[in-house]
Design a protein around this nucleic acid. Structure first.
Lengths: 143, 143
DNA sequence: CATTGACTTGTTATTCTATAACATAAATAA
DNA sequence: TTATTTATGTTATAGAATAACAAGTCAATG
């Protein structure tokens, strides 16, 4: 959160009350949340209760690298390493729906090579893996 | 298409008329298509004209590796290398919406390493990169 | 201070995407 | 044949996202 404040201040963009609260909500939950879920929380705190309120705040966060959008789940999650450029990898558990964010330099390297080879300019990317986290795998093996 | 027939026959699954036609439609278009777009074509060919008709056929194709789902576009595209296991990478041009499917072994290696390190069982994954294809970049630079 | 212009928020309405649930029909197995 | 599974068609509904407009806020300039 402090990082987010520093970053927005440095870039001269405005972390307004709704946006700030939306980020806090994502950070507090420690998981990916749907826009409607975020909206519900926002409206409880006195902000508007129509979809655009949530979508605009979330879009802003994604736009400025403070949050990620998990396409597969139609959900959003706070970025755990804002500021520094990275090729985030999301490990999505189909058992409990938890999302872990990781990433490696070797992956980034492989992607950069690929972009060079195909002459494609990559501006933004996401790697989403669906599977089972250790806990859910254990549960499934047991049954 | 011939590959698809061989594969379904080998696996003992049924490539029924709707499914077959859906795959043909994807193959003919050489691009990613929305479910509704596919539905329209299917209904023109005498199949049902309600959403589930398209979604079921497309889900089947994705399930069996004959097509991919491009999350970012809410669209589907035929797989260009069905059968063999791969970590497909989609290069999505934000200018013309064309989608190129590539992939490298080094990428797959990096992802496998990641999965091992986090003890996460990856069952399925997709890498989607958004950016500009050579043609659209040239057009943008010119303006 | 007043006013301009850019940005932000709230609201209404609508569009697009996807699935649940059920009835019917076809294919496979016993 | 009969039973069982699998697939299709249809109705209805749920879920996700955006367009368009009105109103408010804010900083900067004259």
């Amino acid at each position: 959160m402090a990082t987010a404040e520093r970053q927005t201040a440095a870039e001269g963009i405005r972390l307004t009350p709704v946006r700030r609260r939306a980020l806090e909500i994502l950070l507090e939950s420690h998981r990916a949340m749907g826009a409607c879920e975020v909206l519900e929380r926002l409206s409880q705190d006195g902000f508007g209760n129509q979809p655009p309120v949530a979508y605009r705040a979330l879009d802003f966060l994604v736009e400025h690298g403070l949050a990620h959008r998990i396409q597969r789940l139609n959900a959003y999650a706070a970025c755990h390493a804002p500021g520094q450029p990275h090729a985030p990898v999301f490990l999505i558990c189909r058992g409990c729906d938890k999302v872990a964010e990781t990433g490696t330099d070797s992956l980034r390297g492989a992607l950069d090579d690929l972009a060079r080879a195909s002459d494609f300019t990559i501006e933004r990317m996401a790697v989403e893996a669906l599977g089972l986290c250790p806990a859910c795998r254990a549960a499934e093996d047991a049954s």
